[in-house]
Design a protein around this nucleic acid. Structure first.
Ligand SMILES: [Zn+2]
Ligand SMILES: [Zn+2]
Ligand SMILES: [Zn+2]
Ligand SMILES: [Zn+2]
Ligand SMILES: [Zn+2]
Ligand SMILES: [Zn+2]
Length: 452
DNA sequence: GAGTTTGAAACT
DNA sequence: CAGTTTCAAACTC
């Protein structure tokens, strides 16, 4: 299976050859400006890329982002370039053979081929009865399915591919797709627009390292059960028991920033018992009495209750045959399921389900955050640079003209950068995204923030 | 596979 | 910032 391409381009790599599908390089949008070092050199892009580069160039630091680990889920260690670290997503690794046919105008992927491809989840591994895995679902990383957007042209966050920072590829069954390397300018400009509205839009939602021991560790430590940013979920009817809930889907418990009602997230509930400290749960008792305990009612206090290994068995598991266990990426598994993950898994980006190796970042995000935040923090200009940087005009109105609004979600409040990198390489740059409300105390890995 | 449910994203 | 609409995935059948 080929690697997937993420939406980014490196200067060096720009080439036009399309090569074999199997071999693509993942292109990461985010990295676009950076060069990925180590990897191979084939590129998909052509001249356009060049243009883009230019734009991107600003970020050209070469930190060398390496996106190693093209394979799904393998990526435990990737070196992350500084900025990247925050935004590391390894999420993308699908078998994507992008048809980068140059000829491809811009349009849809409607090739039936894709659809078909999607279907083939061949390797998913054991033939265990497929319980319910739907498209992206994991499956394991192998199957990596992709989006099936009909109206967004894959240029809005509705599109999981776009949201994850990767180009659409074969497995996608999207219609009118513009999220392709051939439209890179559009893709990037769109990303920037969105990012300008919400700098965290492309930041990984969940970062978790699951090393054998650590998995829970994170809980125990400081990162709240969920190291998620953004605002947490807002589930009303699902009780955070299904994948409708982003927290649950990401394999993390709900945090204080969630506004869910009747939360029963198997990875850790929000609210509820106050006193319970998270950490204990970690291992001390497996039984976890508390977690199960239900929501007593929603008090004001939102605390996070985490259920350690014990029981939280997500619905899926319930029926699942033990033997097969889940194929899901570790990260997404509920704590209890099986044992601890051996490899370090970082879930980033969205659903862990996408299996991509590369970090989908943001175009500039790597740097951009830099810029953005810098600007914001330092009071430099607004985000002009962004806009300017990328040719805005290229932006296409996907569906409707969006006005760009520049009101970052909550930057003001939560500037504290999170710097939790799974592996730590810290660089001097500013973390790609600030932690938002939830985790305030996460300095764990050590953030190196240059003092302003 | 069609149809429903769900909550984020987008929009007003 | 809240309310509404749009959207595509998750889920159900
Ligand atoms: Zn899409
Ligand atoms: Zn797609
Ligand atoms: Zn697409
Ligand atoms: Zn939820
Ligand atoms: Zn939540
Ligand atoms: Zn919840």
């Amino acid at each position: 299976p080929g690697a997937c391409q993420s939406q980014s381009v490196s200067n060096d790599q720009i080439c036009n050859a399309v090569e074999e599908p199997s071999d693509h390089i993942p292109i990461d949008q985010s990295a676009l400006s950076q060069n990925m070092r180590g990897m191979r050199r084939r590129c998909l892009f052509n001249e356009k890329a060049g243009a883009v580069n230019k734009a991107a160039k600003k970020t050209s630091d070469r930190h060398s982002a390496n996106t190693t680990t093209p394979r799904c889920k393998t990526n435990s260690d990737k070196i992350v370039p500084q900025a990247a670290q925050s935004s590391i997503n390894q999420a993308s690794n699908f078998p994507c053979a992008v048809s980068s046919s140059t000829s491809e105008p811009n349009i849809v992927n409607e090739d039936s081929s894709q659809a078909i491809v999607v279907a083939n989840a061949d390797e998913s591994g054991q033939g265990s009865p497929k319980k319910k895995r739907h498209k992206f679902d994991d499956g394991d990383g192998t199957s990596c399915k992709r989006c099936s957007c009909k109206k967004s042209k894959c240029l809005k966050l509705y599109c999981e591919c776009f949201h994850a920072g990767v180009f659409c590829s074969e497995p996608c069954s999207c219609q009118g797709c513009l999220n392709k390397p051939s439209n890179m300018e559009i893709v990037l400009s769109t990303r920037e627009q969105i990012e300008s509205r919400n700098p965290l839009a492309f930041a990984p939602k969940v970062i978790r390292t699951s090393e054998p021991g650590q998995e829970l560790g994170e809980y125990s430590n400081k990162t709240p059960a969920s190291a998620r940013h953004k605002r947490g979920c807002n589930c009303k009817k699902s009780s955070c028991l299904k994948k409708y809930c982003e927290c649950y889907q990401g394999g993390v418990g709900c945090s204080i920033s969630c506004r869910c009602e009747g939360c029963k997230n198997a990875f850790g509930r929000r609210e509820g018992l106050g006193p319970l400290s998270i950490e204990e749960a970690k291992q001390g008792n497996e039984e976890n009495s508390a977690c199960v305990k239900e929501e007593k009612k929603e008090d004001d206090n939102n605390q996070l209750v985490i259920c350690p290994a014990a029981n939280p068995v997500p619905a899926e598991n319930v029926l699942t045959t033990p033997s097969a266990m889940d194929v899901r990426p570790l990260a997404s598994r509920p704590p209890s399921s099986s044992k601890r993950p051996r490899s370090t898994t970082k879930v980033l980006g969205h659903p862990s389900r996408l299996c991509n190796s590369q970090a989908p970042l943001k175009t500039d995000t790597l740097l951009s955050p830099f810029e953005n935040y810098a600007e914001i923090m330092f009071g430099v200009g607004t985000s002009d640079s962004l806009k300017g940087g990328l040719s805005p005009q290229t932006s296409v109105k996907v569906v409707s003209p969006n006005k760009k609004r520049v009101s970052p979600p909550r930057i003001g409040t939560g500037l504290s950068p999170i710097c939790k990198s799974g592996r730590k390489l810290i660089l001097k740059s500013i973390p790609s995204f600030p932690s938002l409300g939830g985790d305030v105390n996460n300095a764990d890995t050590k953030t190196t923030l240059p003092a302003p």
